[in-house]
Design a protein around this nucleic acid. Structure first.
Length: 392
RNA sequence: GCGUCGAUGGCGGAGUGGUCAAUCGCACCUGACUGUAAAUCAGGCGCCCUAUGGGCUACGGAGGUUCAAAUCCUCCUCGGCGCA
């Protein structure tokens, strides 16, 4: 993997560049399409290509459980397995420490609204438990127990065969207090070193880029410390993960990127709302993955230049205009809001497909335009114009 | 015509004297979703109001019994089934 910066935006941390992998080039900033189980839900790889997606990210925990990393390895890696021939990434399973752990059944998101109550009490229903050794998972599929360690995560990710992979980390909850974030951060640091060691032994030819993951919650000192500590290690890039506050994603990301080495790509993990993308690019991020476009799409929430709409609302039943006037996606070129509303109400699978196509198109195009606006110095104008309309 | 069973909110279907504006499912109306436990989940769903409370109208229709009826009785209307 090779990363080059083409252009930096004066007065900000934003930059445009490209990442070269053996499977192709990624023009950054870039949105990474999520294909957790070696499929972008409701879409064929052909459709994902057609959308202009540059990278697909799959998940270690999910593919390990099903169908198992050995089968994916036999298929030639998850990209080949799913017929995606471009650049690939895998997440380490660190997010599942949160989603199946602290967040399980707790109604908390990694992006905090501010109303959450501080709480780290583990309760019996959780499917993941974190120790210094690693994370014990109880499979959400069949209840069987599994231990994930940094070493195990590297081994699985090596077999899954992505171009870029992540160190094993603990994604913390926004409800965790400072003391816990601090303790967890120290652990994630140890795991980062263990990940590097383990991966170095597997990938002797340096085929696979390894990204370290910065945690630290919403605390400036912890975020900066993490960036300093991991920044000097031999990672090929960095992921920025963990919990944020809705209002200050850009701020927290800025703390980190101001410290991280400039010449390595930074991937903001799991962020993908338009406003957050602008903030994160401005704060120096190059890559973003997010399930929001596809999940929200499947649930009937669609992006438009004028903000999000819920296509299931009664007002769209007889609306024979496209989701968004002027949108060039497959869905908008051929179908009306009324048709989508009908498909959703009729519980037809095509609804999720058409909605995912539109939302992914919207976000992929948005990040492309953001990139272009950096190159031609119109970022601020574009950001202001887009957000003014999107929020209105 | 006789007998018998039934008629409940948009639909299906519970309830069978008070705790019933009425379980539940569907439909409908809204909302949430940010490294996918999620084609999922949550709330609302008779009308009105000076709304963590109050009022009104309701369980085919009309009467009646009772302190109290969706629940019991009578007649009527409609429907299923059986016998003519």
């Amino acid at each position: 993997m090779k990363f080059t910066i083409e252009k930096k935006l004066d007065g900000t941390l934003a930059r445009a560049g490209e990442i070269e992998t053996v499977n192709g080039i990624i023009k950054t900033p870039a949105f990474v399409t999520v294909g957790t189980k070696a499929t972008v839900k409701t879409l064929t790889a052909e459709q994902v290509r057609g959308l202009g997606a540059q990278v697909v990210l799959a998940n270690t925990y999910h593919l390990y459980l099903q169908p198992g990393e050995d089968i994916v390895a036999q298929a030639g890696g998850f990209g080949k397995f799913m017929d995606w021939h471009g650049p690939t990434m895998t997440d380490s399973g660190g997010f599942q420490a949160f989603s199946l752990g602290a967040a399980f059944g707790a109604n908390v998101s990694k992006v905090a609204t501010g109303d959450e109550v501080e709480d780290i009490s583990a309760y019996e229903g959780q499917l993941a438990h974190v120790t210094d050794e690693g994370v014990t998972f109880k499979s959400h599929i069949d209840g069987s127990k599994h231990l994930f360690t940094p070493e195990r995560s590297m081994e699985i990710q090596w077999k899954l065969g992505a171009d870029m992979i992540f160190a094993f980390d603990e994604c913390t909850s926004p409800t965790a207090p400072y003391e816990y974030q601090q303790k967890s951060l120290a652990r994630t640091y140890e795991w980062a070193k263990r990940s590097l060691d383990a991966h170095g032994k597997l990938d002797t030819e340096k085929k696979q880029a390894l990204f370290g993951v910065i945690q630290g919650g919403r605390f400036k000192d912890l975020r900066e410390q993490a960036a300093r500590d991991l920044g000097v290690l031999n990672f090929d890039g960095f992921g920025i993960g963990g919990s944020f506050t809705k209002a200050d994603i850009g701020t927290a990301v800025g703390w980190v990127n101001a410290v991280l080495p400039e010449d390595k790509p930074r991937h903001l993990l799991g962020i993908g709302e338009p406003a957050d993308l602008f903030a994160a690019v401005e704060a120096g991020c190059d890559l973003f993955d997010c399930i929001a476009p596809t999940r929200m799409g499947r649930h009937g929430t669609l992006h438009t230049a004028d903000g999000k709409i819920n296509i299931k609302n009664a007002r769209f039943v007889q609306d024979f205009t496209p989701i968004e006037e002027g949108c060039t996606c497959y869905t908008c070129m051929r179908h009306t809001r009324a048709y989508l509303a009908h498909l959703f109400r009729a519980d037809e699978m095509t609804a999720g497909t058409l909605a995912s196509i539109h939302n992914l198109h919207f976000i992929l195009r948005l990040v492309e335009k953001i990139r272009r606006s950096i190159l031609d110095d119109t970022f601020h104008d574009y950001k202001q114009a887009f957000l003014a309309r999107y929020k209105a």
